[in-house]
């Protein structure tokens, strides 16, 4: 088999197609859970899986996003480096971070604490940074941000080929949260129901989703993912299987 022999790719495609097909059912489960969970008002949130809509609020101190330097309630980033692998270049993640400081979500009836640790975030990327040939203000913020998180932007050979995506939630941003409401451990409970609870990831396998889009948009996105996976997975697997059989002269 030469290096360009597609047979290994065909085996990979067969396995991937089967995996994608079953993963599609996982997406379907998430779609159905979001679709069938009624939206709660913060004031009347009950223990268990809940879905709320509201605006983000700072709990104690604001966070500062490392690259854009904005006061926010949550941020995440993903830094990648372009590396050579054989004859090809690929982007490899060298640093990834998701803040876990609690914040609040407020609707017209009250506000409730969110513990974002282990949340599955569906946020639009707010900023993309990339080292470029010509230095500009964007690249300067990128370099400063890299220094803040302890990643050197240059080495012996010059500037490293890096890129980064940053996401943040500013106070006042609209949010959709689906998670598990859990009682807070206080010596005395508050009269307000929402002060006695927080939303976080529940037991293993429980959904915990934070999104900066409406439920309708989220469902629409999941629906397309689900359809693509359930239908294209088998197409990929069958095509690859067909090719494998053909290569081994069964067809």
């Amino acid at each position: 088999m030469s290096n360009k022999d597609p047979l290994p790719y065909a085996f990979f495609g067969l396995a991937a197609g089967i995996g994608i097909f079953f993963w599609g059912f996982g997406v379907r489960r998430r779609y159905k859970t979001i679709e069938s969970t009624p939206t709660s008002r913060v004031r009347s949130v009950a223990v268990g899986l809940v879905e709320i809509h509201g605006r983000a609020e700072i709990e104690n101190m604001p966070l500062r996003s490392p690259f854009s330097q904005l006061d926010c309630v949550y941020y995440s980033y993903n830094v990648e480096e372009r590396r050579k692998s054989g004859k090809r270049h690929t982007w490899v993640t060298i640093a990834k971070f998701q803040s876990s400081q609690p914040y609040r979500v407020r609707d017209e009836t009250g506000s409730i604490l969110i513990l974002p640790k282990d949340a599955e975030c569906t946020f639009r990327v707010d900023n993309n940074y990339r080292m470029s040939f010509f230095s500009d203000a964007n690249e300067e913020s990128f370099k400063a941000g890299l220094e803040r998180i302890g990643i050197p932007h240059s080495n012996l050979f010059g500037e490293r080929p890096l890129r980064c995506s940053e996401t943040y939630i500013l106070p006042g941003d609209e949010l959709f949260v689906l998670g598990t409401a859990t009682p807070r451990s206080f010596s005395e409970s508050s009269e307000r129901n929402e002060d006695n609870l927080f939303i976080a990831k529940g037991s293993k396998g429980a959904l915990f989703i934070m999104a900066d889009r409406s439920e309708k948009e989220l469902l629409s996105s999941l629906w397309w993912q689900m359809c693509a996976m359930i239908f294209l997975g088998p197409v990929l697997a069958v095509s690859c299987f067909w090719y494998i059989l053909h290569r081994f002269h069964y067809l």
Binding site: P234, A237, V238, F241, W242, L245, H246, Y250, L251
Partner: peptide
């Protein structure tokens, strides 16, 4: 046989 295997996968 090959076609049967593909059909089985389908």
């Amino acid at each position: 046989m090959g076609v049967a295997l593909v059909a089985l996968l389908v």
